[in-house]
Design a protein around this nucleic acid. Structure first.
Lengths: 228, 228
DNA sequence: TAGTGTGAACGCTTTCACAGCG
DNA sequence: CGCTGTGAAAGCGTTCACACTA
């Protein structure tokens, strides 16, 4: 098998205290978005797809595809495969991708500004609802069409606008406090780009995107390639 | 070649001779960078650390810490814990973090420019060696102090400057071709931010950082929180 | 016949428990 | 006594094999 690594996940800390009644394995949840994207892309050129082809396009195996999809209930037709649109919509519903989740980004440095304009955030499933910083030079100016607010306004804004997902793109030293404020403002899902481990209360899901860790794994790969 | 490719004894002159490292499990490799960062941070305030404390700071368990470190050879002192500096340097050597790997970034959009200035890339283990784009408006201008080159110059530049790690921050449609060019230029370790699965030859390690997938997992979390 | 759905085997990872050593 | 190092057990996720069905 190739070393191509969607399978190689960064550390994910699932802190869900009350697991869903109908439990989809975490490994499956992390692959559903891949299937969703593949199905969405080929929806116009195919009406059905086999687990074999879906596996190839998603970078996994047919057996895993069938197992994963079995957790969503049997949607395939033996001998024919899966109906693309039906399967896409089912996965979309499971993921909650069929509505627009309001996202707040805290930290309008280079990375935060880049994310605010990120195409993935402009899709139908997400909406940049608020941007925050503490730097007076940034507060009040628009980024990607949204006015940057001072972090102190978070509570007030979250009372008027429901915020579902928080993205932390602050320096490491500020991340912990920002996370606390996001949780206080009612956010339970956080995407953290700061290179620190956030200590959040139970029930809050934190996904860490830590470039430094990724780079060090690549470094390990280079080192072992050179030295055996 | 395997993803959890065997690491052999580094020929670093340490005071203590460690047994050869045959294979480090992939799960362990992905945690070593976390330990490294923790140890580096506390090196000035502590001289030894127990598996319990290291686990807490790294967000894992003491049993996992001990198991992980056992793959690097026994470095601990029973009753006292691990010597912070020695352990840090040992992990650094295994990860190859004790030298500066030259990194090339392809795609100088918002994300590429943000990464070029990313502090994690400015550390001692990495060096932004080259930046590439195909947009004439970007080629020739400096980003983070490095002149952006046209992608067509990749081969020529890679003959003069050794490039170890490639970062892809292009639009999705270009990513596949860029990956091919990077591999042709002799790069075996790729950090891919484009939301596509790269089909690369065996022996090339690709780490995907796919924000869209992360967001959809958070979306799943929000959805199941609302609907059970 | 082609391809799903699934129990069972397999292998990797985590957890447990404790012997052993400073 | 405190804490490491490590076999053994448990838990998950992946792979296999094949019965079954449109």
């Amino acid at each position: 098998m190739s070393c191509s690594a969607g399978a190689a996940q960064p550390q994910i800390r699932l802190r869900v205290v009350h697991p869903p009644v109908r439990t989809v394995p975490a490994a499956t949840v992390s692959r559903l978005p891949v299937y969703f994207r593949v199905l969405d892309r080929i929806a116009e050129s195919r009406s059905t797809i086999s687990s074999d082809l879906l596996a190839e396009l998603a970078g996994t195996t047919a057996a895993i595809v069938r197992k994963d999809l079995s957790y969503l209930g049997s949607m395939g037709t033996r001998g024919a495969g899966y109906e693309v649109l039906g399967l896409r919509d089912r996965i979309s519903a499971v993921l909650g991708a069929n509505r627009a989740w309001p996202v707040a980004i805290v930290g309008m440095g280079n990375l935060g500004r880049a994310l605010a304009s990120y195409p993935g955030l402009a899709g139908p499933s997400f909406e940049v609802a608020a941007l925050f910083d503490v730097d007076p030079a940034k507060v009040g100016r628009p980024v990607a069409g949204v006015i940057v607010r001072h972090l102190d306004e978070l509570d007030e804004i979250s009372r008027n606008v429901k915020l579902s997902i928080g993205v932390i793109t602050t320096p490491a030293v500020a991340a912990e406090e920002v996370a606390g404020r996001l949780v206080e403002a009612g956010i339970h899902s956080i995407l953290n780009f700061a290179p620190v481990r956030l200590g959040v209360s139970d029930g809050v899901l934190v996904r860490d995107v830590d470039l430094g860790l990724h780079l060090l794994v690549l470094s390990y790969n280079e080192r072992s390639r050179l030295e055996g």
